[in-house]
């Protein structure tokens, strides 16, 4: 096993799991309203008050997601790591080039394939993160219109409510499909990480994974290490440790031990060359 690189701190992993759970609840309870006769909705519709509870849960999860978004904004603003995330997340011309070159590599237009070195967040991640922000804003605004219809309809005509309803639905379709197609490819079905990228559980990427996806960042870290400075993505230096003090120490007795075993097993499956 090579060197591990911290990808997500415990705080970020908790944020991620939080979002994943809330997003799933929102998707299920949301589409359960649009397709009430679908077979998978029967656990909701067969229960007395099921639809009422569905609505309540949808709003609750919406509020939770919004709260998480608010927390994430504070995290981005008031921790050094967060501020670095913002800086690294800004999309640039290089991302477009990376995307284009990846496509050309994959279509065998570039022969031999160009080795692409991408930064801390590659174009895949930037696209998804920015899409997530966009989606959260759209869903929050339209969702609040639908929730507080009495207040909204004090000032706006009824058709704006219908527009909000349509946008809320289609944006949900878009977001769900994006997660299924884009995110699940990046972290599950991508042959480089299959059966799963473990970063969301143990927070680490292997050196091999870093090379493939974040070559530039790997070079930067290595240069920093050679230069003797402490690499900056290993937890907070500033902020008084208030935002994520649980990172040190608890990492030792974390789930990593259990999942490390599974991970080793998976790695041996992955590296299996046949008999």
């Amino acid at each position: 096993m090579g060197k591990k690189y911290l990808r997500m701190t415990l705080n970020e992993r908790i944020q991620h799991i939080n979002l994943a759970i809330n997003f799933t609840i929102l998707v299920i309870t949301g589409f359960a309203l649009k397709y009430p006769e679908a077979f998978w909705v029967s656990p909701i519709t067969d229960v007395p008050l099921g639809m009422t509870f569905r609505g309540f849960l949808h709003r609750l999860s919406g509020v939770a997601t919004l709260t998480l978004g608010g927390y994430h904004l504070l995290y981005l603003a008031f921790t050094e790591r967060g501020r670095q995330i913002v800086v690294d997340m800004i999309p640039g011309w290089k991302d477009a080039v990376d995307l284009w070159e990846t496509l050309k590599n994959n279509l065998f237009i570039n022969r031999p394939a160009k080795v692409l070195k991408m930064g801390r967040f590659n174009f895949r991640e930037k696209l998804e993160y920015l899409g997530l922000i966009w989606g959260t804003i759209v869903m929050t605004v339209t969702g609040c219109i639908l929730w507080f219809k009495e207040e909204w309809l004090l000032f706006f005509p009824l058709w704006t409510f219908e527009v909000a309803r349509a946008i809320h639905f289609y944006e949900a379709v878009l977001a769900t499909l994006t997660i299924l197609v884009w995110h699940f490819y990046s972290v599950v079905f991508n042959p480089d990480v299959y059966p799963m990228s473990w970063a969301w559980i143990n927070g680490n990427l292997t050196e091999h994974e870093m090379e493939l996806e974040h070559g530039l960042e790997l070079e930067r870290i290595k240069a920093e290490e050679k230069g003797g400075s402490v690499h900056s993505n290993e937890g907070p230096k500033a902020g008084g440790g208030k935002v994520y003090p649980m990172q040190e120490g608890r990492e030792k007795l974390s789930i990593k031990g259990i999942y490390g075993m599974v991970q080793n097993f998976n790695e041996s499956i992955k590296n299996w060359k046949g008999m």
Partner: peptide
């Protein structure tokens, strides 16, 4: 996105 990812998957496979 599907096209892009499918190409990526195909190439890596």
């Amino acid at each position: 996105l599907t096209f892009f990812n499918f190409m990526d998957w195909l190439r890596k496979t």
